[in-house]
């Protein structure tokens, strides 16, 4: 009886403990996450005071996070209404970008890799984009060719957008970002 209950305790402890630890760091952890509209960021990932979950997540792969003071990385896996980003749909990414020396916006798979061919363009930098008279950006993301700033999407797969702000006064203060300072992501239609 004693041996049985001891085995039960150990099995329960090791099973739930290891499974929950794996689940907690298999993807970017929920701990330390800041949501700004459709965008997500982890402000403490680039400092000395990185939290243990982010540290464990980053150590499981070849990651070199942007340092606090170097830049801010924002990830969007869903549009403004909370619907997952889908490569079959057409999206409008429009609005302003926070004050920053340079920024890039890229299309990635859910693991953070860029799509290879046939997706010809992986993203835009602030120097490559055509702005309207008011200085706002307007990008159309779709798998079919679009007029204006066209960001190609991978046909029938889910994707994520990454906005990286380099050398911004908001480095290390990503919590100060507000939704109206970032581009909005709205679904236009789905093919």
């Amino acid at each position: 009886m004693r041996v049985l209950s001891l085995a039960y305790v150990i099995a329960l402890g090791a099973g739930i403990g290891l499974a929950s630890a794996h689940y907690a760091v298999a993807h970017r952890p929920v701990v330390g996450l800041v949501k700004i509209g459709a965008w997500q960021t982890w402000p403490s990932s680039g400092g000395r005071d990185i939290d243990p979950y982010m540290r464990a997540y980053l150590a499981r792969g070849v990651h070199l996070p942007l340092g606090a003071g170097e830049g801010v990385e924002l990830v969007a896996e869903a549009d403004d209404t909370g619907q997952e980003l889908d490569g079959r749909c057409r999206y409008r990414i429009a609005g302003t970008t926070p004050p920053t020396r340079a920024w890039t916006l890229t299309v990635n798979d859910l693991e953070g890799r860029v799509f290879g061919p046939p997706v010809s363009r992986t993203g835009f930098t602030d120097q490559e984009i055509v702005r309207d008279e008011s200085g706002m950006i307007a990008i159309v993301a779709a798998s079919a060719v679009q007029p204006g700033n066209w960001l190609p999407l991978p046909g029938n797969r889910r994707f994520a957008l990454r906005l990286r702000l380099y050398d911004t006064p908001l480095s290390g203060q990503a919590g100060e970002l507000r939704p109206d300072m970032l581009p909005r992501i709205s679904r236009v239609d789905c093919g």
């Binding site: 099995a11 329960l12 402890g13 929950s20 464990a56 980053l58 150590a59 792969g61 990651h63």
Partner: peptide
């Protein structure tokens, strides 16, 4: 007791991953 042990295993695992990982940068 099993759940308490699970909590301890969880914390120890999270703290050990960065020390033991050989697939990091």
């Amino acid at each position: 007791a099993g759940l308490v042990l699970a909590g301890i295993v969880h914390i120890v695992t999270i703290l050990l991953i960065p020390r033991l990982s050989e697939s990091d940068a």
